[in-house]
Design a protein around this nucleic acid. Structure first.
Length: 445
RNA sequence: GUGGUUGUAGCUCAGUUGGUUAGAGCAUCGGUUUGUGGUACCGAGGGUCGGGGGUUCAAGUCCCCUCAAUCACCCCA
């Protein structure tokens, strides 16, 4: 064993593990395609400025960044949204709207590895650009839900908690809190569930310096607002405030669309979600496991100003990300990972070197016809070879011995029920195709 | 970044108050009179006991440091 190990937070995927990752990616890809989304990809290594421009210099301590041999400041991508904004921005005028794009890629973050958070992870990103109305938000949330349902999860297994930064901003404005202070107040809201009352009051006071809003009153109002989890409750709070009432029309549209699409059961209104992401501008949402672990499975929202900020056109956008690590943890806990089966269709047992040439000829034909075929490199006895076929995970063995070759046939043997049938070598491809489709009865007399 | 726990073969683990050359099961590979099955039997490979330093006649075992995993915080695009 080498004493050079993988870097902390990085994973190796042995075939069984890679199959699980492949399954996750397949479900994501299938779900996205069903929504008409097209797959894209971008470089794993990007100029450092691509990320600092969006998120500021503080982000650098969470980046895998370095100077390349050409003296360029570069970084492995921590997310794909800036690359998306750049790509869309460059060709936005020529792409039909709305743009439905998704990507599945490896991302890197330099932080202390923990459960569900590694330094390298695969993430699905799905984004819908060019549509500002709530229909697009609904479409993205629906896709997010279907990406989870595709694994065999039910709407009971997770919740999509929906919040709204726009509504928050309008509510804070109704309290007399200016937009310039709203972001700071929201970061206090984000801590409502965790912080002690005195810490929260201190933080709120700090967030409101420069205004004449009473911190205790604002804190209480924010608590009430965050605790409202029904459209009716929000409507009451919006009474007399036209801006909030207008926004609630978008909420009605959003919820109606999602209900009509069949996602009523997994949705909840939860205004405690504000997400740290400063660039979100409207609806935001997170998908959480409902079980004891309460893992965060996905998150997203509307970011109408980001593409323009990345020097692109003024293009509204909404999207979400879903990582492979927590999804995998959840699927393992729910026993929703399909059994690993990656063996060949046929294991060709070559019994005696005299049969090898004929066997190799057929092996090549079968492979070119699309079958998955293995065979024994070294001559062996029958029990040993049949065992080898089993260990390889083959469904059927094809026996090539002196007697079969002399008769111009091969013997197909089911490794599950041990039945056998002879197949003329001239007829081998259609006969074996039938065996894979219908089982041994296709060739048994 | 701050604390707690853990670290012996590929995996699961044993290893006595410190005492000879660190073991078992599973797994892997080979064999058990050359054409019909995962059993059984025999055998082999595989460990600087996470790494380094210290105490001691003697360290897998005790002490310190370090690395990694993991849990709770901070953070979380």
């Amino acid at each position: 064993m080498s004493d050079i190990r993988t870097l902390p937070g990085f994973r190796e995927f042995y075939p069984e593990d890679r199959a699980v990752l492949g399954h996750i990616m397949n479900v994501w890809r299938q779900s996205c395609r069903r929504y008409g989304f097209r797959e894209w990809e971008s470089p794993v290594l990007e100029p450092l400025e691509l990320f600092t421009e969006k998120s500021g210099e503080e982000i650098v301590r969470q980046l895998f960044n370095f100077e390349d041999k050409g003296g360029r400041q570069v970084s492995l991508r921590p997310e794909m949204t800036p690359s998306l904004a750049r790509m869309v921005g460059a060709k936005a005028n020529g792409i039909p709207k709305p743009i439905r794009w998704f990507a599945i890629g490896e991302n890197f973050r330099y932080e202390k590895p923990q459960k569900g958070r590694l330094r390298s992870f695969y993430q699905l990103n799905a984004d819908l650009l060019g549509e500002a109305g709530p229909a697009a938000d609904a479409e993205i949330m629906a896709l997010c839900a279907d990406c989870l349902l595709g694994f065999g999860l039910t709407q009971k297994d997770f919740r999509i908690r929906i919040s709204d930064r726009t509504l928050w901003f309008r509510y804070l404005a109704s309290l007399g809190i200016p937009e310039s202070h709203a972001a700071a107040v929201l970061s206090v809201v984000d801590k409502l569930e965790r912080g002690t009352p005195s810490d929260l009051l201190t933080a709120m006071t700090a967030a409101l310096t420069g205004t004449n809003v009473d911190a205790a009153h604002a804190l209480q109002a924010a608590r009430t607002f965050a605790g409202t989890n029904s459209l009716e409750g929000l409507t009451q709070l919006a009474a007399g405030d036209e801006a909030m009432q207008n926004r609630l029309q978008d909420w009605k549209h959003l919820l109606h669309t999602l209900h009509a699409l069949g996602f009523a059961e997994c949705l909840t209104i939860d205004l405690t979600i504000v997400r740290g992401l400063a660039y979100y501008t409207g609806f935001v949402f997170e998908a959480f496991e409902t079980g004891g672990e309460a893992r965060a499975l996905a998150g997203g929202g509307r970011y109408d100003t980001l593409v323009k900020k990345m020097h692109g056109p003024d293009l509204p956008a909404v999207g979400f990300g879903m990582g492979d690590v927590t999804v995998r943890d959840l699927l393992e806990a729910k026993q929703l990972i399909p059994a690993y089966a990656d063996g060949p269709d046929f294991f060709v047992m070559i019994l005696g070197e005299d049969a090898r040439t004929a066997a190799l000829n057929d092996i090549a034909s079968l492979r070119h016809a699309g079958f998955r075929v293995e065979y024994n490199f070294h001559d062996g006895k029958f029990p040993k070879l049949i065992h080898a076929a089993e260990v390889a995970g083959a469904r059927y063995a094809l026996i090539y011995g002196g007697s079969e070759v002399a008769k111009g046939v091969t013997k197909v043997r089911s490794l599950t029920d041990r039945s056998e049938a002879e197949v003329p070598r001239t007829d081998i491809i259609p006969a074996l195709r039938a065996v894979l489709a219908e089982g041994m009865r296709a060739v048994l007399p």
